[in-house]
Design a protein around this nucleic acid. Structure first.
Lengths: 152, 152
DNA sequence: CATGTGTTGTAAATCACGTTGACGATATAC
DNA sequence: GTATATCGTCAACGTGATTTACAACACATG
């Protein structure tokens, strides 16, 4: 492990800018859920998979709509969908009406994984809530949903 | 531009999980500052550069300490430092006492860029504050600093 | 009906940013 | 003086995104 750090003390750091704060938070949450899933036996699940899963709770959509919602190109989605399909979490269905596009639908295994992920996330949120206080946490979440939540 | 989206309507989306909320927020802030810098004429500045800059406000440190603070390997920092050095934003100084390690110090151009970035960020925060309300924003920031701020 | 325009799925090359592993040089503790 | 740890440096690699390209289908308009 010649690549990691050990003990050295951190120096004094002035107020961290919002850029690093938000990124640290996002990384913390993502890492927490991902580690929880891996510990629960779900190997092979990556950040991209989990992100896609989070934007798929709505059930079934065409993959381009997902990409649009996530703010990334549909080509990026495509690879992730393929990978999750190979893992047996998703299925691609032909749309009988629009031969143009296909529908992304979760398999039973996919649903089970999503359920598990939500449980782990709930645990993380609870521990976070306990640490920073209930109403501060409520305002934190409210701010997130107000600005970056669905149907802004 | 066959890779982007145009008008399509977004479908109904249930409550977004904290994973996507935090990631969306982080992406929004980072993108905002980065776009502002590019519009201001600072080309060639990447996300990694900006992130490094945010953890460098303290003035001068050895690069390994920066990596430690950012939670990434010192090898990852090294490349970014090199790039910013090539852009004339940073300088690597030999530490006369510890021949072992070097000091990362900002050039005048670097300071100017940092100043500009902070100004853009302040503008973003202000507009955000105006949209979601002052005290909600205050709690939002307080939560971020309490949990993921410096010297937790 | 024919034709242009837009959206979708698919594929490949490339880029950005991180990791791991390895190595020499220096600092430090025994 | 020898063992151990840290730092800087280099190379290989993985992952997740972008860009470019193209064929197929949808739809509006002539």
């Amino acid at each position: 492990m010649s690549t990691r750090f050990t003990k050295d003390a951190l120096e004094t750091v002035p107020p961290a800018p919002l850029t690093v704060l938000t990124q640290t938070a996002a990384h913390w949450v993502m890492r927490g859920v991902l580690d929880g899933l891996h510990r629960a036996g779900y190997a092979g699940i990556s950040e991209a998979h989990l992100a896609l899963l989070g934007n798929l709770d709505c059930g079934t959509t065409k993959s381009a709509a997902i990409g649009q919602r996530m703010g990334i190109s549909r080509q990026a989605i495509y690879r992730t969908v393929r990978e999750m399909q190979a893992l047996g979490l998703l299925r691609l269905e032909e749309d009988p009406e629009r031969g143009n596009q296909k529908l992304v639908v979760m398999t039973a295994d996919g649903e089970k994984l999503a359920l598990r992920a939500r449980a782990i996330l709930a645990g993380l949120e609870q521990s976070l809530c306990r640490r920073i206080g209930a109403d501060r946490y409520a305002q934190f979440r409210a701010a997130l949903e107000a600005e970056w939540g669905p149907a802004e």
